[in-house]
């Protein structure tokens, strides 16, 4: 019985899993953060102009973040179907 456990492959799988998880959740959290900044800005800026700019920037950042997460989910789907 020859034992050939590929420790390197195991470590690589573990490392990639860890990195991807932390990266995705970080990007998603930034998106959530941007969205809630935007809401706060919109509330504060209801009577004055300065809030509107922050609101737009927040929306743009949030959109990018969620788009990145959506792309990761699509890649996950392709892994499942592949």
């Amino acid at each position: 019985m020859s034992m050939s456990i590929k420790w390197a492959a195991l470590a690589q799988t573990a490392g990639v899993s860890f990195a991807v998880t932390v990266a995705v959740v970080t990007v998603f959290s930034v998106g959530v953060l941007a969205l809630s900044r935007r809401e706060a800005a919109l509330e504060a800026g209801q009577d004055g102009a300065p809030g509107a700019g922050a609101g737009k920037g927040g929306l743009a950042l949030a959109s990018v973040c969620f788009a990145v997460c959506a792309a990761v989910v699509l890649y996950g789907l392709s892994l499942i179907a592949g």
Partner: peptide, 25 residues
């Protein structure tokens, strides 16, 4: 991975309104 991600998620959203961020999560 879940532990690290949780830490980061809480850290990044620590100054936001919890209700709003919870909705996102």
């Amino acid at each position: 991975a879940a532990w690290g991600a949780t830490k980061l998620a809480y850290r990044l959203t620590r100054n936001t309104d919890e209700k709003t961020s919870d909705k996102g999560f």
